[in-house]
């Protein structure tokens, strides 16, 4: 099927406009991170008057960025790993067994994803605070509390995507393993998981991104010691100065890992979305 000249030009125009819309903020982020402070204080410049890497050095001392970064790394990594581990078992059960409550489980879990976060915020805040007062288990303002919260946030979608992946693995493989004497768990670990590695990796990155980017609970459930990047990045504006060049430098640094991870795995996300949506 040939493309007409009109279609070709239409395509070029649409793509140019979309690309400009997407690129301009990214361009400003990257170039402004290399600007001296006066460039971001007196009007806007398209290009740094004197390109410098100073903002990338200063950003660590203006706010305790290293602490926020470590907090975010610890919280997001542990939440992602635990979330995927829990999701693997749940998805295995949903994909390979027919049991009473299977439908209810799937629907309930997916629908919580759609509920307003604000609905959980106030009760969880109270539960965490009161649990701390009553039992001494510090969940409020601690990284543990954040980890548990975030790992549950990414759980529904992780389960959904993994069920899609597991369903696409032929049951013949399971049966062959079972004939060889493998129990259900060995089938899961030695047959299904190796075949679903891309899906598991994609889900891990998704869970990491969810925790890395969460703002609402981070703004309420943390104190100075457990603060994550989501809240900490707002500390660059003081009463006297807004260090826009350092904000852009810090934004760039915290974005690069997740963007690279996401883009490297994007086709597995597409595959996971399709696999999940087909059913």
């Amino acid at each position: 099927m040939r493309e007409t000249a009109g279609e070709r030009w239409g395509r070029r125009i649409v793509l140019t406009l979309l690309a400009l819309f997407v690129v301009i903020p990214l361009y400003v982020m990257v170039t402004s991170a290399a600007k001296p402070l006066q460039d971001v204080q007196n009007g806007f410049t398209w290009w740094p008057s004197r390109p410098t890497l100073q903002p990338f050095i200063d950003m660590w001392s203006t706010v305790p960025l290293a602490r926020y970064l470590v907090n975010s790394l610890v919280v997001s990594s542990i939440a992602a790993i635990c979330s995927v581990a829990v999701a693997i078992f749940a998805a295995f059960a949903v994909s390979r067994y027919r049991f009473r409550g299977r439908g209810v489980f799937s629907v309930t879990v997916l629908s919580t994803q759609m509920f307003p976060g604000i609905l959980f915020l106030l009760p969880l805040f109270l539960i965490y605070v009161n649990l701390g007062n009553a039992t001494g288990i510090e969940l409020y303002a601690s990284r543990t509390g954040l980890i548990i919260t975030y790992l549950t946030f990414s759980l529904p979608f992780s389960i959904w995507m993994l069920v899609g992946y597991f369903d696409s693995i032929p049951r013949g493989l399971d049966e062959a393993a079972q004939v060889d004497g493998a129990g259900p768990l060995r089938t899961l670990f030695q047959v299904i998981l190796p075949a679903a590695v891309p899906g598991v990796v994609a889900v891990t990155v998704y869970a990491f991104m969810t925790a890395w980017g969460e703002v609402l609970f981070a703004s309420v459930m943390t104190d100075e010691g457990s603060r994550t990047l989501a809240v900490g990045l707002q500390g660059y504006s003081t009463q006297f100065n807004v260090y826009w060049n350092q904000i852009m430098a810090a934004s760039l640094v915290v974005s690069v890992p997740v963007v690279v991870g996401f883009l490297a795995l994007q086709r597995y996300f597409v595959a996971g979305l399709t696999a999940g949506a087909v059913k």
Binding site: P25, A230, L233, Q234, M248, S251
Partner: peptide, 10 residues
């Protein structure tokens, strides 16, 4: 893919 706060701050 960008963390929401990095995108919105920009």
């Amino acid at each position: 893919a960008l963390p929401v706060y990095a995108a919105v701050i920009t």
